[in-house]
Design a protein around this nucleic acid. Structure first.
Length: 423
RNA sequence: GGAGAGAUGGCAGAGCGGUCGAAUGCGGCGGUCUUGAAAACCGUUGAGGUGUAAGCCUCCGGGGGUUCGAAUCCCUCUCUCUCCGCCA
């Protein structure tokens, strides 16, 4: 969430950036400032009373030790009288703090100046495009038909075991998925990211830290018996590694990568979006996360985009990189690039990665800070990106590399699959 | 699942209800010494709120209570550790 002091200091700018995002509840901005002003006033008044109480209590101690019982009793009464005031103030303060936090949580991150204006996906800007659309043989089919033909994924049995959207990978399909995970993790660690295998369920505090709670609660699977959430992405456990930590400036940047299954309820999805591997409830993804010095985060965002770009390129999949417009960005992002590959048989673009700079929006919630050269406490910036989402990469590979008599593989995967063709 | 112990500053670890935001050790930072380093010695070193500042206030796992006053007493929740059981 945004910092109150920042909102107060740059009120006009904040309002302007929020309107760029088509965020309509601008009254919330003034509500935060108003409530915080009130909080300050009550806090100061109460501190003054507390100070008097502390002094009186000390004196009571001194009087008692001198045996001046009557004087002590008089002072005791004085303190007792202060108590009701203190109680009232503290209740008011507690209430205000909750209210301020609730309002802050409803205000999204501010889109960076360089983020294109606009509110729908049509307003996203293609910043780069690479690769030629493959010319498929006559009779080429979408990946869901290839999957069936070669027995790579068994959706029906997944339904039997769990429900729709829980694919059962099998044989060469399972092997390809494992190969891709291995390849992505190897590429990431070579680029300097430290590999993690995180927990796949998180507690409330972690889900809150990265912003899944409270607003995206319905997107996560929840285990009420233990109050845990299934992770919707490895970003959640990995970013939370450093929650409530004060880092040294020399610790930065911190580069982390992790593979994990991702669980998403995807309530309300339907139609061609959900055919085959396009959208499922459980899928695998390799994620990269960085915690960086706030002055460096945009530089790092470009580096992360380039890293993901090399990865997609190495798979020989045609892709384009979009800079999302303000209105299409997620709630907590300040700038986002999406990667879309062209899946030739479906003849459509599929999102395979989203790389974002959250600036201090997440780290303010998680209180991930560092001491700078002047000894000031500052929030680090957090960034993350997919490298990459597995099912859609697989869909693209199957469709684009299909031949009349089998499916070939890009060169980088040969050693991981142990062959130059999948089937 | 059963029994017990515990939760204090970056870490380890003290702390008769008032003089404790907290001993001590380690670590960190600065300095003396040294050609340099180590050692030794000296100093310094938690976070948040408010204020131009001095200062004042809050925080010893979370919440509540007793008291003029709580790290210290009581209740409660959560978590961790040890032992037993079960188990990949």
């Amino acid at each position: 969430m945004l910092q109150v002091n920042h909102i107060r200091q740059y009120r006009e700018k904040v309002l302007e950036r929020l309107s760029a995002k088509y965020f309509m509840e601008t009254a919330l901005v003034d509500a935060v400032i108003e409530k915080d002003d009130l909080r300050k006033r009550i806090q100061s008044a109460n501190d003054e009373i507390l100070s008097r109480r502390n002094l009186a209590s000390k004196e009571i101690g001194a009087l008692m030790s001198k045996g001046l019982k009557d004087d002590a009793e008089a002072r005791k009464q004085e303190v007792t009288d202060l108590k009701s005031k203190i109680d009232r103030n503290e209740q008011e303060l507690a209430r205000l703090e909750v209210e301020i936090r609730e309002v802050l949580q409803r205000i999204p991150n501010l889109p960076h100046e360089q983020v294109p204006a606009g509110r729908t996906p049509e307003d996203n800007v293609v910043v780069r495009q690479w690769g030629d659309t493959p010319v498929l043989h006559v009779g080429a089919v979408p990946h869901w038909d290839l999957i069936k033909k070669y027995g790579l994924v068994d959706f029906e049995t997944g339904v039997k075991i769990t429900g729709s959207g829980f694919p059962l990978f099998k044989g060469r399909g399972a092997k390809l998925q494992r190969a891709l995970i291995q390849y992505f993790l190897d590429s990431n660690t070579e680029a300097g990211y430290t590999e993690y295998i995180p927990p796949y369920m998180v507690n409330e505090a972690s889900a809150y830290g990265t912003g899944q709670l409270p607003d995206k609660e319905g997107q996560m699977y929840y285990m009420p018996a233990d109050n845990f959430y299934m992770i919707p992405t490895a970003e959640v456990p990995v970013t939370n590694i450093y929650r409530d930590e004060i880092l040294k400036e020399s610790d930065l940047p911190i580069l982390m990568t992790a593979h994990s299954p991702c669980f998403r309820r995807e309530a309300g999805s339907f139609g061609k979006d959900v055919r085959g591997l396009n959208r499922v409830h459980q899928f695998d993804k390799v994620e990269i996360v960085q915690l960086v010095h706030p002055d460096k985060s945009y530089e790092v965002l470009e580096q992360m985009v380039e890293h993901v770009e090399r990865l997609v390129q190495s798979l020989g999949l045609p892709y384009r990189i979009l800079r999302l417009c303000a209105g299409d960005m997620s709630f907590s992002s300040a700038m986002t690039y999406d990667f879309e590959i062209y899946s030739a048989a479906q003849e459509r673009w599929l999102e395979v990665s989203s790389v974002s700079n959250f600036e201090a929006y997440q780290t303010n919630r998680m209180k991930i800070r560092f001491k700078d050269a002047e000894g000031r406490m500052r929030l680090v910036h957090s960034l993350n990106g997919s490298s990459l989402a597995l099912p859609r990469i697989m869909a693209g590979l199957l469709e684009n590399f299909q031949t009349p008599d089998g499916i070939l593989l890009p060169a980088v995967l040969h050693r991981y699959v142990g062959s130059d063709r999948l089937v």
